[in-house]
Amino acid sequence: MSDTLLQVKELKKHFAINKGLFKPKAYVKAVDDVSFSVIRGETFGIVGESGCGKSTTGRTILRLNDITSGQVIFDGEDLSKLSYEDMRKARRKLQMVFQDPYASLNPKKTIRQILTEPLRVHGLFTKQEREEKATEIIEIVGLHVSHLDRYPHEFSGGQRQRIGIAKAVILQPDLIIADEPVSALDVSIQSQVINLLLKLQKEFNLTYIFISHDLGVVKHITDRVAVMYLGRIVELAKTEDLYDKPMHPYTQALLSAEPIRHPDEKRERVILKGDVPSPVNPPSGCTFHTRCVSCMEICKTQTPSLAIMEDGRSVACHLYN
């Protein structure tokens, strides 16, 4: 039995939105019944288009917003039941790295303060030891000790992301949820940061949840991938299997839309019609049925459940039930 670090069970996060004083409340079903587990030491990817609920899934696991329903079991403990204070303590073991490194670093603090503060907040080490840790980590992420007394604005985007990563790693967490950590970076810097994430994973035995809309990056770095559409997982598979042979019609369309790698590459494209429907009023039945090329009658009325295939992947589609 592999060692499960995190189990997400039937997680839902619905945001209430006010449509007007006398109108009934409406809900954005940002995450709608999502279940998956993450094995210790692996990199678990979440992909999908803008608004499909990737970030909300990550943030809800960390309880950066309240859980509507469902469970998040981390290392045997149900995070959804923890008090605010206990959750704060638990976060030492679950850290997040954000897309926009600038917004997540306090502009008024030096890098030294930014790095030692999480240790201080969690009451770890003496002041001197905390300083040592900061010195150690800054070099591990490829910056220099002299950078410690500078402020975030003095760094480039790639360097700031290194600092954001250092800030997460310094607590020696078990799990890091990285939400589009390289999406804002230039191509030549992006590969540096991916290499850093790979190196740190080996060095500290980290488990990652890697959230991204970049299919190439996800293919490179992850072991397993969940594909989300309108708040739900439509396919979950080993990375090789998913990219070799996508099964869900949405995954097929998504992968086929990725740009080619060479001008001579020929690709059969499944061009999706229209736009993603609103998560406030998702379509009935299979929420993808309005854009699906294989849509059948049953798809319009019945929600397909995740069925397990021979190779161990799961797919939520009536074609396979």
Binding site: E49, H213, S256, A257, P259, I271, D275
Partner: peptide, 10 residues
């Protein structure tokens, strides 16, 4: 998104 990108490039 990539699916929309594919439409626009087309």
């Amino acid at each position: 998104d990539v699916t929309i990108q594919a439409q626009i490039l087309d």
